[in-house]
Design a protein around this nucleic acid. Structure first.
Length: 151
DNA sequence: GCCAACGTTGGC
DNA sequence: GCCAACGTTGGC
């Protein structure tokens, strides 16, 4: 099993929304993020991260319930995510399905993550990082889930 | 293949 | 709203 982090702007889609209903993670139009999704396996665990909002940070956990398959929104000219280079015969973009697992009692804020010396090498904390889907090491996963119990 | 211009992300 | 950092595009 592998561990991941996925970012979402809560104004657009929050952990509360995911709690209500599993979702397909469509609209990713970055090759690195796409490749990460393509290597996801069913049951992989995901930190759900709220970005560009008041309370920035990891708010809970989701898991992969369906492995990568073509993102059909790329084929719809009316979609914001339309990309003429992608077709059903030759898909360019992929998505996975995820479901809610649990919510942290308090957000593991970005600033608190930055304060942990043992997390200094996290992709998320690297300067200028903009990737919306990224891998998390097992060690980082364990540190963060443990800390989340003491917030 | 280089690189300038542009658009986007996302913290502050 | 600002702006640094990054990915992508496209001319050459």
């Amino acid at each position: 099993m592998n561990y991941w982090l996925m970012k979402s702007e809560p104004d657009a889609f929050s952990l509360e929304n995911l709690k209500a209903k599993p979702t397909s993670w469509d609209g990713v139009r970055n090759y690195q993020a796409r490749n990460h999704m393509k290597s996801m396996k069913q049951g992989d665990q995901v930190f759900f991260y709220h970005s560009s909002c008041k309370d920035i940070g990891i708010v809970g956990i989701a898991q992969v319930i369906k492995e990568s398959y073509p993102d059909h929104t790329a084929w719809n000219p009316k979609s914001d995510y339309f990309d003429a280079r992608s077709s059903p015969e030759n898909p360019l973009w992929y998505m996975v399905d995820i479901e809610f697992v649990r919510e942290f009692s308090h957000t593991m804020t970005l600033s608190s993550l930055k304060e942990s010396p043992e997390l200094a090498n996290m992709n998320l904390l690297k300067r200028g990082n903009r990737l919306s889907v990224m891998p998390i090491t097992e060690e980082e996963w364990n540190i963060i889930t443990l800390k989340s119990q003491y917030l």
